[in-house]
Structure formats: structure tokens, C-alpha cells
Write a protein that binds this DNA or RNA. Structure first.
Lengths: 345, 345
DNA sequence: TGATAATGCGCAACCGTTTGCGCATTGTTG
DNA sequence: CAACAATGCGCAAACGGTTGCGCATTATCA
């Protein structure tokens, strides 16, 4: 039984012998209502503990002040930090946040999008599943006027709103850092090949080696599908190269940790026989005795916050009178990953 | 402009020259509708890409298939894991999840509850802010028939639904483990005194020492407010006791890590000069070279999943015909924290 | 004082869907 | 063939608010 009935605007109207429209307006301080009645209404509302039924308002206004968030999972600290940022800026703009996890499954991602659409969220923030290579389920949203902002794992096409950290500058810094430390054989422990960031990383890697006139050996670029087994396998490949790489750039901290475990098992001393540099700079690394030498910080909280900000911005633009056929424009925020060098502990 | 108008049930009705009620029923496979028209309706619906407007349904049905979640923050892995569990079981039961963070601020917690109520969530899952000692904002929800389930940080009063892991069994195991390893001076690095779990832990600690006929020295019980500074300070106290404790039970992994850092700074060898046992057993500990000797696993994912399950259960009970004045009952799930002994690595 | 303007409020439609009830039409039975 | 039952569908109210428009009533001015 879903019913101890709450006071409604009608109830107030009846008790005061005025119309519901009057009550509604009075509660909104509409100028067309006399001070006298406005007061009476507001007082009674207070007294009855009246609270507007948002579901009714959502329905009527055709907007819900809710934004949907789709991420691959919540297990990775990167994403929960991002949601922290999203929730924070959303709530301070009176938006609520609906979250769901795609679990890196494309079908699931699709279903989630449909549900969010039916729930009439005002906008959606997405970090792509690693399976996603087509974007029709997102472009479809345009018909429904639901803006989408991607973050971190963003589509490689231009016609989307995105917030992401570019691999280039961070990767450049990281590799140059290693070169300056004297490393000449630098391995790359990269993510799935179809991911934008993986490609960027490999690209940058090659460029720098060329610039520095170092030999490029593609045997030093390995890919992992992000599972531990796959990472260990990739490490096995890398460590079997001759001469063995003396440093490894890993796609993120978790992967680096897995890799370091593997290296330890092979009786290699971390930061001595082999050095690691990774991405993300998660809080956990600060607790390690032998953390990666450096991490490219990707500011997940900020990415989330920026994405939410961008979305809310777009939503408030929509309110304004729409000039005929403005061409649709897409926003892009690139957060520069920054190399954080971990002090010895 | 929030309006490329979507196909509605009315639209379908018009095109087929039937009434909206017929369409509605046809789409729900209501037996009162002939096979013939049912087919026509469903076909056209398909063709028009009709999707029901959930906001309308929410409004009409007075339920939203949404559950609200209030946690202190998303930064702690414990909570994001819990949300993982919540989201997972919620979504497989067709519920959506609305999250917000109290940031350990009571006022904020109150506001969130009000918003969730106005948004007509069907139920709420809460882990209390550490400031919360009064529960009127939750009891108020009973008037609105919104059930609440607490997890982890739960109220100490009996008349609430809760899921939590009891400190007793885990703490007992942990301390006995240490005693068996030969430790006689065991320190406790406890949380804020007002938290239920802190009290329980201290209580159990004393009991066991008594049972084992060991001397109780309250100088070995220190409190931290969970900040790193405070933890270090507590550690300073503990390490200055004479004889120095040879083992420490810390309230959770983060605190243990902070404490271990401090110990290292004091030139103590972890797991040799001083051992640590902590609570939570977060994934990160598996990456440490010298993890705590053992952790009491608290199964955050399961706590979340159980809490969601309990809530959804309560919600579906509500559907059933309510016998007059059943006394309200409250459910309790206690998850036994289990001591996980970390293998040497 | 009469015309006009300003003020204060009510009417009613609308948002999209669900559902109890009732009315035809058709089929069944004695 | 009459009486009745079953079948298939429509009417209309309801959920709780918002809002354009219009109508009285009062105030304002010449």
C-alpha cells in the first residue's frame, strides 16, 4: 500500500477556498497573486508540510533535473573518483545522478541508454565500454534531444562532446623522463588496440623515439586486455625481448601493479632492474613501498566534474530561444595529463 | 526546446482508430483485447519506435522503480564497492539507482533525504555520516511509506533495517590469530569513539584479553578521526608505550596503511618489528609487498548487494494485500567479517 | 462620474498512462 | 428463437501540477 496521502496543492486550495492555480502561483511567488492570499497559502503549505510531488512536475515540465551516468564499472578507482566529481557538481546545480555500469558489455550499454532515455533524464555522461566501436545508440539520442558528454573513454569521432586527458603530453613527459634517466630500451604495456588512448600512446611513443633517434622495436609494445592474466602474458613477452627493456610504461596503475607483481616473481627488483611509469596516479600508489617511479595523473575527479559542468551548461543553453538552425557544435575539453614523479620513500 | 515529440499511446490510437485504453491494454497483453487488434497495435508501436514515457508512468503509478543511495563519500573504495553491489542487484531487478554523498555532513544528509523523498524514490539505502547521532530524518520517512535500509554505518537503535558486518567475530579471530603468533602486547588503532563499530571493537578486545588472562592496558587503545594526521598521532602514542606493542589492529586498511607508513618512518620493519591486522581487505592490499598480515574482510560488495536485496524485498512485500495492522518488523543481516590471512609474497 | 487601466484570481486544458465500469456485438445454450 | 453469457472495446476519471487567457472587481485619471 503506497498511500498515506500527502498534502497536495488541491488540498491547500480546498481549505483556503481558492483555486489550485492560485495556490500554485502563490507558492512560486508569482506577481499576479496578492500579498494577502500569497501569505495565507504559503503559511498553510508550511503548516501541512506540503512538498511538491516532483514526479508530477517532471512529467509536466518534460524534464527531470536528472543526469544519467554510464561507466564501465565501479571497481576501478578511476571511475568512482570520476563519479565523485560528477555527483558533486551535479548536486550543487540541483541535479540528481542516476548511475549504471555497462560492465564493458556493449549490449548492456545499449539497454542502459534506452532505459535512461525512457526515464527522461535530461542528459547523459558516458565513459565507453571497451567493446564499443559503433555509436549509433548515442547518435539516436539526438532525436530525443538528450545531450551526451563523453569522458575518459571517448569516441574517436569528432562529432561528440568530450572531456578526456590526452595521452600525448603525458606520454611524452613520461618517456622523456625515462630517457633522461638513461633508459634506452623502453617497453610499452598498452591496452586493447581498439581503444583510442592505446593508439595515441603508441603513436607518441614512436614519435619520440624517432625524434631522439632511438631504435624503434615494436616487440617492445605489448597489449593487454586489462585482465591480470593477459597482463602477465604481455609482460612475459616484454621481458623475453633481448636486450630486456629496463623500463616499462603501463597503461594505468592497476596494470602497472599487476606487471610489477609479475616482475617480482621473475626476481627482478622494482625500480632497480626494471622501472615502471604508469597512468592515473591513484591514491593507492602513495602507499606502496616501491611505487611506480612516476605516474601520469589524469585527474579523474576533474574529468568528472568538467563533464558534468559541460553537460549542465549545454542543458541551460537549450533553455534559451533557439535561433533557427544553428549548426550543432561540439565541445571538447582536454585535460593535460601531468607526470607526477614519486619521491623515494 | 525540449521537443521533437515522441510517439505516444494517443498517436497510435489515432492512427488505428481505436481508443487509448485499447492501445494501453494491447501493449500490456491484457486478455480483454482481441488477438487481431493486439497485433495491429503492437506492430504499429514497433514501427513507430514507441517507448512508454516513464515519467508519466511513475506519476500515475506512484512509484518510480528507483532507489536512492546515501553514502558518506565515493572516495573510499569500501563505498564504491558497496555501490557496485547495490547497482548490480538493483538493475537486475529493474530498479534504477540514484546516488548522493553526505560528505559526512549531517545537514547535507538531511537535505538529500528530503530531495529523495520528493523525487518519490521507492526506497532508500543509507550508510550514515559520521556526524549522525539522531535519526528523526529517517523515521520521518515512515509517514511517506518509504522504507530505509542501512548498511555498514548503521544506527545503534533496534528499530531499523540493517546490514552490517559485526566486529566481534572478526575482531576475535584477528586478535586470537595474533596471540597464537606469540604477540602479547597488542595495540588497537580504533576509529572515532562514537561509532558503533569502534565500541564493539574495544569491547571485544577486552573480552578476549580477559579470557586469555592477558593484562589489559588501555594505553594500547588509541583513537583516530580517520585523517592521516590523527592516525599518525595515535601511532605515536601507541609506539611510545613500554613495552612497545608488537602488533596493531587497525580499524581499516587505509588507516593501517597510514600507520604502516608512520612505522616505516620510525625505522620499524613491517611484519617483523611490528605486525598489522586490519579490516576491509581492500583489493589494494593484494598489491603491497608487505601487506598487513591479515585483514578482516567486510565484503562491501555483498553488504551493498544484501542491502539492495533486502530493500527490494520489502518493496515487493508492500504490494501484497496488507493485513490490518501487522506490527512493523525490522530485518537484520549480519555479515560475519572473516579474517583473511595474507600469504607471504 | 464615467471611461479606462490595473489588480487579483478562476477556468480549463494539458502532460501520457492506467483502469473500473459499462455498452455493443457476437456466440452459446436450452 | 429467446435469453443469456462471453467477448472486445470505448468512456472518462484520475494522478498533481503549470499556465494562457479571460473575467470581475477595484483603483486611477480626466
Amino acid at each position: 500500500m503506497k498511500d498515506t496521502k500527502l498534502p497536495t496543492i488541491k488540498e491547500i486550495a480546498k481549505q483556503l477556498n481558492v483555486s489550485v492555480s492560485t495556490v500554485s502561483r502563490a507558492l512560486h511567488d508569482h506577481p499576479g497573486i496578492g500579498l494577502r492570499t500569497r501569505m495565507r497559502v504559503q503559511q498553510l503549505a508550511q503548516q501541512l508540510n506540503y512538498e511538491p510531488n516532483q514526479t508530477a512536475i517532471f512529467f509536466k515540465q518534460r524534464r527531470t533535473f536528472t543526469i544519467g551516468v554510464v561507466i564501465p564499472n565501479l571497481k576501478e578507482e578511476f571511475f568512482s573518483q570520476a563519479i565523485d566529481g560528477i555527483e558533486e557538481t551535479a548536486s550543487s546545480n540541483k541535479y540528481s545522478v542516476l548511475i549504471s555500469q555497462s560492465k564493458d558489455d556493449l549490449e548492456r550499454e545499449r539497454r542502459i541508454i534506452t532505459t535512461l532515455k525512457n526515464n527522461r533524464v535530461d542528459g547523459i555522461i558516458v565513459s565507453l565500454s571497451k567493446q564499443t566501436t559503433t555509436y549509433d545508440h548515442f547518435t539516436a539520442l539526438k532525436k530525443y534531444n538528450i545531450p551526451v558528454v563523453f569522458f575518459d573513454r571517448v569516441p574517436s569521432l569528432p562529432d561528440f562532446n568530450k572531456v578526456y586527458s590526452n595521452m600525448n603530453s603525458g606520454t611524452r613527459e613520461a618517456i622523456e623522463f625515462l630517457i633522461e634517466k638513461g633508459h634506452r630500451r623502453i617497453g610499452v604495456l598498452n591496452g586493447p588496440e581498439q581503444m583510442r588512448s592505446s593508439k595515441e600512446r603508441t603513436e607518441t611513443y614512436k614519435q619520440i623515439l624517432i625524434k631522439r633517434r632511438l631504435k624503434i622495436d615494436m616487440g617492445l609494445v605489448a597489449h593487454t586486455d586489462l585482465t591480470r592474466e593477459s597482463t602477465w602474458k604481455a609482460m612475459q613477452d616484454l621481458l623475453s625481448q633481448r636486450p630486456r627493456p629496463t623500463a616499462i610504461v603501463a597503461i594505468n596503475d592497476y596494470i602497472a601493479l599487476d606487471a610489477m607483481q609479475y616482475a617480482r616473481q621473475q626476481r627482478l627488483k622494482i625500480n632497480k632492474d626494471i622501472c615502471f611509469v604508469s597512468y592515473a596516479n591513484l591514491p593507492i600508489t602513495s602507499y606502496l613501498e616501491n611505487p611506480p617511479m612516476a605516474s601520469v595523473e589524469q585527474y579523474p575527479y576533474d574529468q568528472g566534474a568538467q563533464a558534468a559542468g559541460m553537460l549542465i551548461n549545454i542543458l541551460s543553453e537549450e533553455e534559451k530561444p533557439t535561433r533557427p538552425d544553428e549548426p550543432e557544435t561540439f565541445q571538447n575539453i582536454v585535460i593535460n595529463g601531468q607526470l607526477i614523479i614519486h619521491g623515494k620513500r
